[in-house]
Structures are given as structure tokens and as C-alpha cells.
Amino acid sequence: MAKIIIIDDDIDILEASSLVLKAKGFEVLTAQNPDDGFKLVMENNPDLIILDVIMIEPDDGFFLAQKLRKNGFAKPILMYSSVSKSTGLKFGVGELVPVNDFVEKPISPELLIEKVQKFLNV
């Protein structure tokens, strides 16, 4: 079964999302900050990453995505955040933000599963 890593500083979100995905049979690992997240990804080579934008710093998610890409991680990254439009940063899928999709928090379990299944071709 596919392996998913969720990186988010909000432990409640981590837990709820994990449970939703685990109920669908995915293997889920979690990290609460960019450093732990990076390590976890490098060690476990997941099939998909779900990544929060604002953690310790407001742009942690962006930097982590760039760092992961630079280090050869080529699998899909699904980025989510509770703030996108008003931060002044141009959010979107592109070179600056090398992710495959971008969604606003909160994500309903249905949407989360739909997105994950799309990326994993389940």
C-alpha cells in the first residue's frame, strides 16, 4: 500500500488527517516541523507528501518543498494552508513552489481522499 507523509505543525490536523487516510488503507507517517519532515522523507521515500505552508516560519512549507526537490524527491507533493490569498506571497503551482497541487484548509475527508487517490492513481 502507498506510503504518505504528512508534515504539519498542528498535531490535531495531523491526527485527523492520518486517521482518514489510514481508514482507506494508506500507510501514514507524520512530522511536526520542516527538519523532522525532511529527515522522514529522506529515510522513508514516500509516494506522496502532504505539506503545510506556515509552520515555525510563514514560508517553511515553500522552502521545504524546494529543498526536497533539490534533493531529488520527485514524487507528488500536495500543499495546503489556511491562508493563501492574503499573505502577499504568490501561491501557486510552479517553479517557486514546486508542488503538484495546492488546497485551502480545512480539507474535507472526501476531498483529501480524492486528491490523494488522484496522485497515487488508485
Partner: peptide, 19 residues
């Protein structure tokens, strides 16, 4: 945007649990 983020985070978590 900071306020929005800070207010949305607990809402998102709560909605997550309820879902």
C-alpha cells in the same frame, strides 16, 4: 493574513475532528 491564519487553524482542526 496572520490573524486569518491564526483564527483558521483552530477552526480547521475542529472541523477536521468533526468530519
Amino acid at each position: 493574513s496572520m490573524v486569518a491564519h491564526e483564527l483558521k487553524a483552530p477552526l480547521a482542526a475542529t472541523i477536521g475532528f468533526i468530519n
